[in-house]
Design a protein around this nucleic acid. Structure first.
Lengths: 135, 135
DNA sequence: TTAATCCTTCGAGTTAACTCTAGGTCAAGC
DNA sequence: GCTTGACCTAGAGTTAACTCGAAGGATTAA
């Protein structure tokens, strides 16, 4: 079975070795085995697990909460419901983020056309009559 | 013209007075005037400006960069192009974030059904044959 | 054998964005 | 006139998530 060193994994996941060691220190990688002299030995399944961790991070989940999830995974089938509920919560959270980002996008697009018009006119005064922010 | 105190503005924008003072300290609010004894006096237009600042924050822009933008605003029409370009960049950035979030959502949804199936079966072993992450 | 290049741990340092404390001013109400 | 409460500043403290340095061990290549 193919294995990987920490720097190979770092490269693959676009992280630094420092970050991976930090995750390990925080208890996010209890499954990673070691060589006789102590070097971390990553399996394919470890990389998959790290990808899930990266996904949870992308939802804005703090590392301590990700650790709770990893602990549940280690505990086995008795925590299936907690894990399921956690992903449902993450789903709701990401949906909220998407909605927020959509609103943000609308303002940004509005600003783009505001500045396009102002730039073409050479002055922001073109918008004087609108009750808009001065920034 | 109606004006507002710092705590009224904080309430309106869902921020703390500490945060608003911090923004001021960082140069994000050079337009806010003061009463003779030094209290900040916010106008409607200041609140609009703060909403734009919150929008930029929501795009993930760091406060130092927002300050650059605020400085450009103070400089007037000569910086219209920079400001326009900045908003174009922000737009691209938000689009990237949306794409990223969509990918994240797909993984999360997959995990939701994974755990639903496992929970209903009472064991994660139901997924044994798939080459999936063990977390 | 020696140098380079991995890897290790431990613990300190960094950065951003707050968050709060201490000590002080000022206006309103009793 | 005094207390209460909102405001002020300067600067210290907090937190998360890295990020790095020092000191040292193992493997490989000339």
């Amino acid at each position: 079975m193919k294995t990987y060193t920490i720097s190979e994994v770092a490269k693959e996941l676009n992280l630094t070795v420092y970050t991976l060691r930090y995750y390990d220190k925080e208890g996010l990688m209890p499954f990673v085995e070691r060589t006789p002299n102590g070097n971390r030995l990553f399996k394919e399944s470890d990389i998959s697990a790290l990808k899930v961790i990266e996904c949870l991070k992308a939802t804005g989940m703090p590392i301590k909460e990700i650790k709770t999830f990893i602990d549940w995974c280690s505990e086995g089938d008795s925590t299936l419901e907690q894990r399921y509920n956690m992903f449902l919560e993450r789903k709701a959270n990401v949906e909220a983020q998407m909605a927020e980002l959509k609103k943000t996008m609308e303002v940004i697009q509005h600003k783009c056309s505001y500045y396009k018009t102002a730039m073409d006119a050479g002055t922001e005064d073109i918008h004087k009559n609108e009750k808009l922010a001065k920034v």
